[in-house]
Structures are given as C-alpha cells and as structure tokens.
Amino acid sequence: MVERMTARDRVEELKRWQDSGAVWTVVSRTPDRLTIALLRCDGGEEVDRFESADPALREFVGDRVDSTQ
C-alpha cells in the first residue's frame, strides 16, 4: 500500500504557533520560497524549521521578518 503525504497548512501552523505565544522567524526568503524557523515561547531555542513555496504562506508572512511585527 502506498501512503499519500498530505500537504500541511503552514499558515494555520504559524497562526497556532504565534497564538500560543511562541515566535517564528524568516530564516531566508527568495521570490518563490520561504524558510521559517519556529522558536520557543521565550524567543530562544529553535524547535523546528521548514521551507515552503506556498503562495498563501508568502502572503501571510508578507514583508515581516518574524511574528513579533
């Protein structure tokens, strides 16, 4: 049996992350791709990192460099 990978809703993930008091930051940005780091609630240690070319994510992040803006 072949398992299909479902796409993750990274916008919802970032919204939940920041609503819980944690911080996300843009590690790198190109015209078609973002790399986002998820940081602990105190803005310290990196917990996870992902890359995405999702236009909805790029629209949500906009020109921000992190979730504190």
Rank of each mutant, 00 (worst) to 15 (best):
Trp24Lys: 00
Trp17Ile: 11
Phe50Tyr: 03
Thr25Arg: 08
Gln18Ile: 05
Phe60Arg: 08
Met5Ser: 14
Thr6His: 14
Asp19Tyr: 08
Gln69Asp: 12
Ala37Ile: 06
Val26Glu: 01
Val27Met: 00
Arg49Trp: 14
Asp9His: 06
Ala53Ser: 13
Trp24Ile: 00
Pro55Met: 03
Val26Asn: 01
Thr30His: 03
Trp24Val: 03
Arg33Pro: 07
Arg10Gln: 11
Ser20Ala: 14
Val47Asp: 08
Leu38Arg: 01
Arg64Ser: 03
Arg33Gly: 03
Glu3Thr: 12
Leu39Thr: 04
Val23Pro: 07
Phe60Pro: 03
Pro31His: 11
Arg64Phe: 01
Met5Tyr: 12
Leu39Phe: 04
Arg10Gly: 05
Glu3Arg: 11
Arg29Phe: 06
Cys41His: 14
Leu39Lys: 07
Arg33Cys: 10
Met1Asp: 12
Val26Met: 03
Thr68His: 08
Thr25His: 05
Lys15Thr: 09
Thr35Trp: 12
Leu34Asp: 02
Ala22His: 14
Asp66Ser: 05
Asp66Thr: 06
Ser52Phe: 09
Ala22Pro: 05
Val11Thr: 11
Asp54Asn: 01
Glu12Ser: 13
Pro31Phe: 11
Asp54Val: 06
Leu34Glu: 03
Asp48Tyr: 03
Asp42Trp: 00
Val23Ser: 04
Val23Asn: 02
Gly43Gln: 02
Val2Ile: 15
Thr25Ile: 10
Asp32His: 12
Arg58Gln: 08
Cys41Ile: 15
Gly44Ala: 00
Arg16Gly: 10
Asp42Cys: 00
Ser28Arg: 10
Gln69Met: 11
Val11Gly: 04
Arg49Gly: 07
Arg8Val: 15
Ala53Gln: 12
Ser20Gln: 10
Asp63Leu: 11
Gly43Leu: 06
Trp24Gln: 01
Gly62Cys: 04
Val11Ser: 09
Asp48Arg: 01
Arg10Lys: 06
Val2Met: 13
Thr30Pro: 02
Leu39Arg: 08
Glu12Met: 11
Ala22Phe: 12
Asp42Lys: 01
Val11Ala: 09
Val2Pro: 15
Glu12Trp: 08
Arg49Glu: 15
Glu45Phe: 07
Arg8Phe: 15
Thr25Lys: 06
Phe60Cys: 07
Gly21Trp: 05
Glu3Phe: 11
Ala37Gln: 07
Arg58Trp: 04
Ala37Met: 05
Pro55Tyr: 04
Val11Met: 11
Glu45His: 09
Trp17Glu: 10
Arg49Lys: 13
Asp54Phe: 02
Val27Ile: 01
Glu3Lys: 09
Asp32Ala: 13
Val23Tyr: 10
Thr25Leu: 03
Asp19Val: 04
Met5Val: 15
Thr68Arg: 13
Phe60Ala: 05
Val65Gln: 03
Glu13Ala: 04
Lys15Asp: 08
Arg29Cys: 00
Thr30Gln: 07
Ile36Ser: 01
Glu13Gly: 04
Asp42His: 02
Ala22Ser: 13
Val26Cys: 00
Val47Ile: 13
Glu12His: 10
Thr6Leu: 15
Asp32Lys: 12
Val65Lys: 02
Ser28Gln: 09
Pro31Ser: 08
Glu46His: 08
Phe60Asn: 04
Thr30Arg: 05
Met5Pro: 12
Ala56Val: 09
Gly43Ile: 08
Phe60Leu: 07
Ala56Ser: 09
Phe60Ile: 06
Val2Leu: 15
Gly21Asp: 04
Leu14His: 04
